[in-house]
């Protein structure tokens, strides 16, 4: 209670605040408001442009509807979607294979300090960069196409998968590991019999979850040239072919929702 006791004046009472005093509280509120005013000003948006934009928005929506495609575009759409799905699957598998040793490295109960910090920094780095940034770099490294997308998604999978799996490993029951050691098991047997059975359900659940996430991302990495339906979408926008854009977006939404549904059902059945 850094605030004044309040009981000094019988007829007044002030709500204790999370800040140090009422003045600090209002000061912080004022700063926040000021920041919003500045940020807003910083957008340099004139009302005229905003209203013009609203008009353009209505126009865009009307030129998007109904979604439509020519036979050639239909081919492109199907190819792009299949490529996205395929990329998601391959990236998930590669990502998980790399993630498992990283997860072990990032669990403080299994490995010595230095290795733990290496594991943790791999996790932190792979988590911090957005998949599209990784994708754009990969495109420069290995060229346009799905390979760049797969590498980018696999890279992102490591951060997610290794982090959550490491948390699971840190919670395991050590008794089971010790029991394997006690009967004379070597360290590989210790991992296979003492650790793996305990975290297996989590590995399966996380894999399905990550497949779902990778599917979402594989539909957009094409925007920077990393394969999948994204490039087709970007091209349709560049050609002002908004009906086709709408068709692609609709298909993406449907695919993503189906993926989410299947993933949710599968994860529930495992648990």
């Amino acid at each position: 209670m850094a605030a004044e006791p309040g009981s000094t004046a019988n007829g007044s009472w002030e709500r204790p605040t999370a800040f140090y005093s009422k003045n600090v509280k209002y000061g912080i509120y004022a700063l926040i408001l000021l920041f919003f005013a500045y940020s807003f000003w910083n957008l340099r948006m004139s009302p005229a442009r905003f209203i013009q934009g609203l008009g353009a928005g209505v126009e865009l929506i009307s030129s998007m509807l109904p979604p439509a495609y020519t036979p050639t575009q239909r081919e492109l759409l199907i190819q792009g979607i299949i490529e996205s799905i395929v990329m998601a699957i391959v990236a998930t598998v590669i990502g998980i294979i790399i993630s498992i040793p990283v997860a072990v490295m990032a669990s403080d109960n299994l490995v010595p300090g230095p290795i733990y910090y290496i594991g943790r920094s791999i996790v932190a780095t792979t988590r911090s960069l957005h998949e599209l940034i990784v994708a754009i770099v990969m495109v420069k490294a290995v060229g346009f196409g799905p390979l760049a997308g797969v590498l980018a998604l696999a890279f992102k999978t490591i951060g997610f998968f290794a982090k959550l799996l490491a948390e699971e490993i840190e919670d395991i029951d050590h008794g089971q590991m010790e029991a394997v050691t006690a009967v004379g098991g070597n360290s590989i047997q210790r991992y296979l019999y003492g650790v793996l059975p305990q975290v297996m359900p989590r590995i399966v659940g996380l894999s399905i979850y990550r497949l779902d996430i990778n599917l979402r991302h594989s539909t957009v990495v094409g925007i920077v040239g990393a394969g999948g339906i994204g490039i087709t979408l970007l091209n349709s926008f560049d050609k002002y072919d908004y009906q086709f854009s709408m068709a692609i977006i609709s298909v993406i939404v449907v695919i993503v929702m189906i993926g989410e549904g299947i993933s949710a059902v599968a994860r529930r059945r495992i648990q």
């Binding site: 934009g53 353009a56 539909t219 979408l233």
Partner: peptide
């Protein structure tokens, strides 16, 4: 369900 980059594409068309 619509990724942020797709929303960005749309709003760039609308507001520049």
């Amino acid at each position: 369900s619509v990724n942020v980059i797709i929303w960005a594409l749309i709003f760039v068309v609308v507001f520049g």
